[in-house]
Amino acid sequence: MLKIIDLGKTEYQEALKIQRDFFLKKRKNPEIGDIILITEHYPVYTRGKSTKREHIPDNLDAPIFEIERGGSVTFHGEGQIIVYPILRLKKNLSVKKFVYILEEIMIETLKEFGIRGFRKEKFRGVFTERGKIGFVGIKISKGISMHGFSLNVNVDKSYFSKIIPCGIKDIPVCNMADFIPGVKTIYVKNILISSILKKGRRKLL
């Protein structure tokens, strides 16, 4: 059974604790239900295991947390939908395929708004003609996933300009609002949840 929980807007530490608690329970007893947490964070930077020193300046204007996911540094803020799937993955589902499905959920969501999203070779995440719009960073332990993906709707992009997002220097970050001015996060969230239930549920569980 899959349960989707909308946490609303959260401080990063708060959501991380909820996520880790579910993850540890799930890893201890994989038979308990799968959970997907959805949230928006107040401004925060997170750095994954592949972050290099040159990706982050000395002085940032928001807190930064070092976490156990893959990938480099990124920003989370209001106007960005974040999805944390805490799932028992199918035994034949590789990490690469899992990431592919998460990207596909974002691509399908963008398509509903007439925005063409696509992958780029050698990079994780989702890109558009105007820049990177979707981000993926995960951890899998004993077949259980945590962390996840984020989709920019109308987030303050100036925070990204202070770092090298995902360690990629020459590709800008963009929002859905760059294509559809005035687009509402709540509406995108509803479409995103529908994409998760239609595409992700069938392939992930």
Rank of each mutant, 00 (worst) to 15 (best):
G131Q: 10
N92Y: 12
I115M: 07
P85W: 13
K122E: 13
E78Q: 11
G114P: 09
V99C: 09
F127Q: 03
F75P: 02
I138C: 04
L102S: 07
E66K: 13
R88K: 15
G134C: 13
Y100S: 14
G77E: 09
E78L: 14
I105C: 11
G117F: 11
G71S: 08
G125Q: 13
I101D: 06
G71I: 03
G79S: 06
V136W: 01
V126A: 06
L93W: 04
I86V: 15
P85G: 09
I105G: 11
V73E: 10
T128V: 10
I86G: 01
P85C: 09
G71L: 02
L110P: 01
V73Q: 09
E129Y: 04
K96I: 00
K91N: 12
K132H: 08
Q80P: 09
E112R: 15
G77S: 10
I107Q: 07
G125N: 10
F123H: 14
F118I: 00
E78F: 02
I105L: 05
K120F: 01
G117R: 10
F135V: 06
I101F: 06
T74I: 04
I105H: 08
K111E: 13
I138H: 04
T74C: 05
V99E: 03
Y100M: 08
L110N: 01
F98P: 05
T74G: 06
K111R: 15
I115V: 15
R69N: 04
I86T: 09
G77A: 07
V95Q: 06
L93E: 01
F75W: 10
K91D: 15
G71H: 01
E121D: 08
F113Q: 09
G137Y: 01
F75L: 05
F98Y: 15
K111C: 04
R119W: 10
I86L: 09
G131M: 12
T109F: 12
V95C: 03
Q80D: 08
E68C: 00
G70Q: 05
I82N: 15
G117I: 13
I107G: 03
T128E: 12
V126G: 08
R119S: 14
K111G: 01
E108K: 15
G114D: 10
F118G: 05
K111P: 02
E103L: 11
S94C: 00
